[in-house]
Design a protein around this nucleic acid. Structure first.
Length: 171
DNA sequence: AGTGCGATTGACT
DNA sequence: GTCAATCGCACTA
């Protein structure tokens, strides 16, 4: 859920990746720095980071305070505020609005200002209330990594068309 | 102080 | 399929 000045933006999370304790692919692996400090907040806080000089991406911190780990939000199925998401993204292709972490952040207008917010209480960005899963959940290796590339820590709704990644990783 | 490259995307061949 | 965009952090020295 994104409480935006223009109205509420909402989507179902259909794809995530876990970056767990001791995971060399995780931003928290080398310890806490100014950039990744939000990963060390108590579980349920936002870690927003900037990659490739172009994009933001959002994680949900996943451990107790002081332990760095998180879940990357990789794709949403848009539920509310689609017209505004289209403006943010510059496209009207529903399937592309929030398919991929960079697109997701852009659709929801997420940037560094939201780094560290509590996602478990109503606010500018939060998790809302649970919506029942649809169908089964698939599992695969994570996308775009060079380290720890074999760990199957990506999770996605099997039958969703809003999931990112190469087709062969879907099933 | 300098360098390399990343949890990506979109444009182009 | 390839490749540029573009920034800040981590790493080396």
């Amino acid at each position: 859920m994104r409480e935006h000045p223009t109205g509420t933006l909402a989507g179902r999370i259909v794809e995530t990746e876990a970056y767990i304790v001791g995971d060399a692919a995780g931003h928290a692996f080398r310890g806490e720095t100014p950039r990744n400090r939000s990963l060390f907040l108590r579980r349920g806080h936002a870690y927003v980071y900037f990659v490739y000089g172009c994009w933001f991406a959002v994680n949900v911190s996943g451990e107790i305070a002081g332990v760095g780990a998180g879940v990357l939000l990789r794709a949403l199925e848009p539920i509310e505020g689609v017209a505004q998401m289209e403006i943010h993204r510059g496209t009207q292709k529903l399937l592309d609005l929030a398919r991929g972490p960079g697109r997701l952040a852009m659709a929801m207008h997420i940037d560094r200002r939201l780094d560290g917010v509590d996602l478990c209480a109503m606010g500018p960005l939060w998790l809302g209330t649970a919506i029942r899963p649809v169908g089964s959940i698939g599992q695969s290796v994570r996308i775009g990594l060079t380290r720890e590339a074999l760990r199957k820590l990506r999770f996605f709704e099997n039958d969703s068309r809003f999931v990112s990644g190469p087709g062969r990783l879907r099933a």
